[in-house]
């Protein structure tokens, strides 16, 4: 694959050199400089089509199911409860695989809606100025619908986002031309988005509860008392 990439880049880099020569010869006139540029572009397009098809065929033919374990949690059947026990809250796991978006950027959206109620998350995602927010919103709507239709959830507004995280999907490597016969690598990244909706009200503090000054003082004192003083008796 690398040999093919180098040959492609060398072939393409020869054409700009020719164009540069033409520009240096006729620096005064602009119109001759434009016309020589288009034929190399056509040639390069025709060249890379076959090569890219050859490259991508191997990728296409590989088995690519995406993650499969996350949706298996929907098949867990919990044992029946007694009448005096607290009823178990329903939960639904859902995902959307191979979204054409960077997982590093999608993480911000996933972390943003974590711990929100579903209605609040859908409201907030309308104002998130990122391309992946649309996919996240659609995934949450799908999960909400599945919860009501298949998992015996009574009210669709009585759900909150218990888990929301991003996985890496497929990465296609592209090529970008640099100077002096060199080339740079371009990564076209995909990501998977996973969400788990749980029934009930969202908790007051999804992450660690912020400590009051008294609690901070107590933990500091505990740490001070339990520390090891070296070079002591």
């Amino acid at each position: 694959m690398h040999k093919v990439i180098r040959q492609m880049s060398q072939l393409r880099l020869q054409a700009p050199q020719g164009a540069a020569l033409l520009r240096s010869a006729d620096s005064s006139s602009i119109s001759p400089a434009i016309s020589p540029v288009s034929p190399p572009a056509l040639q390069s397009k025709s060249l890379h089509t076959a090569a890219s098809a050859g490259m991508l065929c191997a990728k296409w033919n590989k088995y690519n199911y995406g993650p499969r374990k996350w949706l298996e949690y929907n098949k867990t059947v919990h044992p029946p409860q007694e009448t005096d026990e607290e009823p178990r809250n329903a939960y639904v796991c859902h995902m959307r695989s191979n979204i054409k978006y960077s997982p590093d950027k999608m993480w911000y959206i996933a972390a943003f809606v974590r711990g929100m109620s579903v209605d609040e998350a859908l409201k907030q995602l309308n104002f998130v100025l990122k391309k992946g927010a649309t996919d996240v919103k659609e995934t949450i709507l799908e999960a909400q619908q599945i919860a009501v239709e298949r998992h015996n959830v009574e009210y669709k507004s009585n759900l909150w986002i218990a888990e929301s995280f991003v996985g890496k999907g497929r990465v296609f490597k592209g090529v970008r031309r640099h100077a002096r016969g060199r080339f740079g690598k371009v990564e076209y990244k995909h990501c998977h988005y996973f969400v788990r909706l749980e029934e009930g009200e969202p908790p007051q503090h999804y992450y660690q509860e912020p400590q009051t000054p008294e609690q901070q003082y107590e933990s500091w004192m505990e740490q001070m008392r339990s520390r090891k003083i070296i070079n002591s008796l």
């Binding site: 979204i99 054409k100 592209g174």
Partner: peptide, 13 residues
């Protein structure tokens, strides 16, 4: 823009 070698990304979705 011309620096990028165009490739046909498959639409996985």
């Amino acid at each position: 823009k011309l620096k990028f070698v165009k490739m046909d990304l498959p639409n996985l979705r």
